[in-house]
Every structure is written in C-alpha cells, then in structure tokens.
C-alpha cells in the first residue's frame, strides 16, 4: 500500500503537455447533441423511479388517515391541516431546532477531528502509522449495538445525561470519517505538499492550505453523511434525553406512532418536514462540489 504507490498511479498518467484549452476537434455538433439527449433521457427515466416514492410520501401527507397506505397517490380530500396538526400536538419546532443543532455540531466536530487524524494518516510519515490506522479500521467492524451499554454508563458518569453535550460529544469522533478522508487525501499529488514543505511550511499550514482544500469533495461527502446519520439517530437520544425541551425529531415522532392512534398521515407530514434540512444541505453541498472542480482545475 502506502501513498507512494497511489502517487505512482497518479504520476503515470501525467499529461504530456497542458492541453485542454483548444476545442476538441473530433466532437461535432451532432455528436454532442446526441450525447446530450441520451444522457438526459437515461437519467430522467432513472430519476423518475427515484422520485415517485418521495412524491407519494408528500401526497400521503395530505391524505386523511384512512387513505395513507392506498397505492392511489391522490387523496380523495386534501388535508393541508395535517401540517398544522403536527405543530399543535407536539412542540415540533423545538424538536426540529434541537435535531438540527445537534446534527450540525456533530458534523462540524467530526469533520474537523477526522480531517486532522486523516492528515496524520495520509500525509505525515511516522513509524507505526499503518498499524495504528488498521486498529482504527478494525473498530468499525464491531456492531455498534454491543458498545451501547458501556457508552451509556460512561456518558452518565461524565454527567452528560439529559444534555446537548451528551448527544454531541460521544458522536463527534469517528473512525469512519478518518478512513474516508484518509482515502481522499491519498489522491492528492505528493508534489503539491512537497513543494510546500520545501518552502518551509509547517504541517499546520500544509493541513489548512493544501490538504483540506484538496480533500474538500471528501469533506463535503462526510458532512452530508454525518449530518444525515446523526439527524436520524433514534436509540441514543431515546435513552439519554429525559426533558421535553431537549427531545429530537425521531423521539418526538413517537407521539404519532403510539399503539392507540397510529396517525400515519401525520407521520408522513412530519417526515416531509423532516426532509427539508436534509435537502437544503444536500443541494448546498453539491453546489460546493461543483465549485470544487473549478478550483481544482485552477490549482492543479
């Protein structure tokens, strides 16, 4: 393994010259047009199959309770009041805010700590590096469920029960994120940071100015994953949080899912609202990803 080998694979394909500025001569207008239509056609068909369930969910959130599971997606009677009911029956806004706040903190901390660790594993040379890394990796292989109890006892001992900190801190260190970012940092051409080292830059500068900007696509992906994973987490907040004002969305939703009155249409309405921050985050992150391309183009 080692980054040298990965680096080699990059170097082999170094371009003979800096091309790409002229017009591609072989691609005629018709060719490009055909390619455009084919791509869009294929993507559109696939996208529709992905979109349908989501549309179905949105429509179901407007249905009366008795039609929710009907395959016919259109409600016989539109009930926009389902959304108002969600806010009436539980302090939904507070749950919403808590979920977003906790997930944002976890995302921020995880990205930061993982990126730093990944830098040490991918761009610094030290003895025992790969051993330590493999140890990290190995911990991913244990189902998280068996560490639930010791973790809980520990969190209680640390006086983090029933607090935001208890939701944030244990989730902020991740071997997964370290592994992911390490893989991204491996693809950075070594020439780049070597040049910086030569100029006398310290590891701190190399990390912030070279490694992080170039690992940005990975960082964005990690941010999306972390946010999503934490935003939807259920069992940990269930056992950790006792006060109503600290509850997160998945716990709040239990109210609509009780044995006596499973209000599936309200669950759907809450789920749709649940999705909004995720979609916003995703779209924003993808904008950044596109810009990343241009940046990389300029820098490289």
């Amino acid at each position: 393994m080692t980054s040298d080998e990965a680096a080699k694979s990059v170097r082999v394909y170094e371009p003979a010259g800096r091309g790409g500025l002229g017009t591609p001569g072989y691609a005629g207008w018709w060719y490009r047009r055909g390619q455009f239509i084919a791509s869009h056609g294929l993507l559109a068909v696939l996208a529709i199959t992905m979109l349908l369930p989501f549309l179905w969910m949105v429509l179901a959130s407007f249905k009366p309770l008795d039609e929710v599971e009907n395959l016919n997606p259109f409600p016989s009677r539109w009930q926009p009041e389902n959304y108002a009911k969600v806010f009436d029956q539980v302090p939904f806004a507070r749950y919403y805010f808590n979920s977003v706040l906790v997930a944002l903190w976890v995302t921020f901390l995880q990205c930061l700590t993982s990126a730093m660790a990944a830098f040490a594993f991918a761009r610094l040379q030290w003895r025992g590096r790969d051993m330590v890394f493999r140890l990290y990796l190995a911990t991913l292989m244990i189902p998280g469920i068996v560490t639930m109890i010791p973790n809980y006892v520990l969190t209680v001992k640390l006086q983090l029960l029933d607090s935001y900190l208890g939701l944030i801190v244990p989730a902020s260190f991740s071997a997964f994120g370290t592994f992911l970012l390490r893989q991204f940092m491996l693809t950075i051409p070594p020439a780049l940071d070597e040049a910086a080292w030569m100029d006398g830059a310290g590891p701190w500068t190399v990390f912030w100015d070279i490694a992080l900007p170039l690992a940005r696509p990975g960082l964005i992906a990690l941010a999306v994953f972390t946010f999503m994973g934490n935003y939807g987490s259920f069992f940990w907040p269930l056992i950790l949080i006792k006060s109503e004002h600290l509850r997160t969305l998945p716990i709040g939703m239990l109210y609509f899912d009780s044995v006596y009155g499973k209000q599936t249409n309200l669950i759907m309405a809450a789920s749709v609202m649940n999705l909004i921050p995720l979609i916003v985050l995703f779209v924003v992150s993808q904008k950044f990803l596109v810009r990343g391309i241009q940046m990389g183009g300029v820098k490289g």
Binding site: Y152, I239, K242, E244, I251, L254
Partner: peptide, 23 residues
C-alpha cells in the same frame, strides 16, 4: 410529572437502570 416516551420495549428502562439513572 413528566413523560419520558419510549417505544414500549424494555431496552430503555433496563439500560438506564444499569447506569442507576432510571425513571
């Protein structure tokens, strides 16, 4: 009196009680 919701299993009370912070 406050309600601490659950998904009706025993997991929650058992885990909380191990850490001596049960309801």
């Amino acid at each position: 009196l406050r309600l601490d919701p659950t998904n009706t299993g025993m997991e929650k009370v058992i885990v909380q009680s191990i850490a001596a912070v049960g309801p």
